[in-house]
Amino acid sequence: MPTYANDSTMKRYYQTLDDSGLFQRMQHDDPQAFEEIYTRYFLKLSNTAFKRLQDREMTEEIVQELFVNLWLKRHRLPELKNPESYLQTLLRNAVIDWFRAQARQDGFAAEMLAQPDRQIINATEQHILYTDLQQAYESTVGQLPEKCRQVYALHQKGQSVAEIADQLQIAPKTVESHLLKAQQTLRYLLKEYSAVAVALLVSF
């Protein structure tokens, strides 16, 4: 890497690197590459998380922890073809873990442990409710308009907005519009079910 005259020149250099280049440098213990990744994606990931959590303090905590873990585990990262998609997957998993923790705190697990005589009954009831929700979810996805359903299905598989736009030959804004419509439709049609359960199924 060339010698830089000052910090601003070095900063501009890192800004010219693509995501893959930044991740490679970060994996080789380059803190400035990590700083640039943080700058590029902190706000984007925070906005995505807030749409699901509706809690700014928890959003900031989750995203900050994501980046801390990213740096700590930098030597064990897989080969990344799409770093942004990888970050979005990390975020999605973190948000799901938060919802699961909330469900436990709401007392569902504690109640089952406190009433061992009803453990089998409760487990059966929860299995039935989950099965009903899964069937309702799949049925609702099937009711989405064709293009909207295609976009949502690809996004569920982990593809980024840019990748979906390229594959379907549509504008990224159109992809975002389809995703928003799919999420709003699914949440509305599944509103009779637990908000936590729906959140675990409906991806952002």
Rank of each mutant, 00 (worst) to 15 (best):
M10L: 15
P31K: 07
I164V: 13
L77S: 09
H28D: 12
L154F: 05
S139A: 11
P2Q: 09
L45D: 07
T140S: 15
I37Y: 02
V68A: 09
L113R: 11
Q135I: 14
D55R: 07
V95T: 13
Q159C: 02
A136H: 09
T39Q: 14
W98E: 15
Y13T: 09
I120F: 05
E65V: 01
A197R: 15
E60Q: 12
Q126M: 10
F108D: 08
W98G: 00
Q64P: 00
Q24G: 05
E138L: 11
Y14R: 07
E138K: 10
Q115E: 11
T48V: 11
A123S: 11
F42S: 09
P116F: 13
Q167N: 06
Q143T: 12
L80K: 06
Q102S: 07
E146D: 13
R100S: 05
E125A: 08
V196K: 07
S8G: 00
E111V: 03
Q27S: 14
Q27Y: 01
V95I: 15
Q183N: 10
A5G: 01
L80N: 03
R118N: 10
S85E: 07
Q24V: 05
A197Q: 15
Y193M: 01
P145Q: 08
T48E: 14
T39E: 12
A197Y: 06
E35K: 14
L179Q: 03
F50G: 02
L189V: 10
A103W: 07
D117P: 00
V161F: 02
Q119M: 12
L180I: 07
F34S: 05
S85F: 01
T16V: 00
F50Q: 14
A101G: 04
N122L: 13
R92C: 07
L144H: 03
I128N: 08
H127I: 03
L72K: 13
M1R: 09
T89P: 00
Q156Y: 01
C148D: 07
S8F: 08
Q119C: 01
A136L: 04
I96P: 02
Q156M: 11
T140G: 04
R25L: 15
Y38A: 02
R100D: 06
V202F: 05
L22D: 08
V161T: 13
R92M: 08
A109Y: 09
Q105Y: 09
R52L: 10
